[in-house]
């Protein structure tokens, strides 16, 4: 072997920023994550030109998938124009020359923090979720090594206990976002801090979801057509946020996840959290030819015709 065989002509940065050896590692880990749905696969997690905790996990996955023909949508809290989403999207353009979009239907890759779009994703789309803390057991077991053994034994009793305690103390399950969910009947995952509203969108979905925590160096996946069940008791049904009857003051659309905007008179106004979904409704109302995709929720209710 010669040194030359291991090197190549110098370039300040590679296409897609990550060098090929970093991409190969991510590819290997992503494949294992897909093969064992919900299993947290450790990876080296390279430093990227963004601070840890700012989407570096999602970034590495998207950069690995990136090609010039990719059409990328980046959202934060449901919004395309959120500052960090803008920054990440700009980076993809800068290092990947990709096509940027705000339209869920047009994207090949959707990278998101804290939301899953309201329009259904298709079989050919990848959802990349940024994950701050990949460990659903962290609240009951901060030690990552012990938590790993608990996953190995499918020892989730303490999680159930936490939910039960909430039920007893508060009369309902108080878990807000990142609701622990069982994937393919084996691994409990945190679906990232998406609201409870979004968790059912992972169940038997048409699309592939890759969840990646850059700082914590773990990635996991929910393949298409995979069972994702929020942890619930048989006699206490899973409850999403009570947003089914909220109307967006901008688009006048009702029945989707909203942001609450406190008003000076003490009341609240609501706007659609999925910003581009709202824009499409506004444009359509104004007579523009806009195609709004099929949605998971209809009339404020999850339409779950799947098993």
């Amino acid at each position: 072997m010669k040194l030359q065989e291991l090197t190549k002509p110098w370039a300040a940065f590679n296409y897609g920023f990550l060098d090929e050896s970093a991409k190969r590692e991510l590819r290997r880990r992503i494949l294992k994550a897909i093969a064992i749905p919900g299993c947290q696969v450790p990876y080296a997690s390279r430093e990227v030109p963004m601070a840890r905790g700012w989407g570096t996990g999602g970034l590495q996955v998207t950069l690995t998938l990136l090609k010039p023909a990719s059409v990328v949508k980046v959202i934060d809290q449901g919004a395309d124009d959120s500052v960090n989403a803008s920054s990440i999207r700009k980076f993809f353009g800068r290092v990947g020359g990709v096509v940027e979009t705000e339209d869920t239907g047009k994207a090949t890759i959707v990278q998101s923090r804290h939301r899953i779009p309201e329009e259904k994703l298709r079989e050919d789309q990848v959802l990349v979720l940024q994950v701050p803390n990949p460990e659903p057991l962290r609240p009951v077991q901060p030690d990552i090594s012990i938590a790993r053994d608990m996953h190995g034994d499918a020892d989730y009793g303490q999680l159930w206990l936490v939910l039960y305690e909430q039920l007893v103390k508060s009369g309902r399950i108080m878990q807000g976002a990142e609701y622990p969910s069982l994937v393919n009947g084996r691994y409990v995952i945190t679906p990232s801090p998406i609201p409870r509203w979004d968790v059912p969108k992972l169940n038997q979905a048409d699309h592939l979801t890759i969840l990646s925590a850059g700082r914590e160096k773990r990635l996991y996946a929910v393949p298409p057509y995979t069972k994702v069940e929020p942890l619930v008791f048989d006699d206490v049904p899973y409850r999403v946020e009570d947003h089914h009857d909220k109307t967006c003051y901008r688009s006048n659309v009702t029945g989707y996840f909203v942001n609450e905007l406190p008003q000076e008179d003490g009341s609240s106004a609501y706007e659609l959290s999925d910003s581009h979904f709202g824009i499409k409704h506004i444009r359509k109302a104004e007579g523009e030819p806009v195609e709004i995709g099929d949605t998971w929720y209809k009339n404020g209710r999850m339409t779950d015709d799947r098993a």
Binding site: Y15, E20, K23, P68, V95, G97
Partner: peptide
């Protein structure tokens, strides 16, 4: 910044 993948990049991707 390289906006264009090399032939190797494209093939492995």
């Amino acid at each position: 910044l390289s906006l264009l993948p090399t032939a190797d990049d494209s093939r492995t991707n």
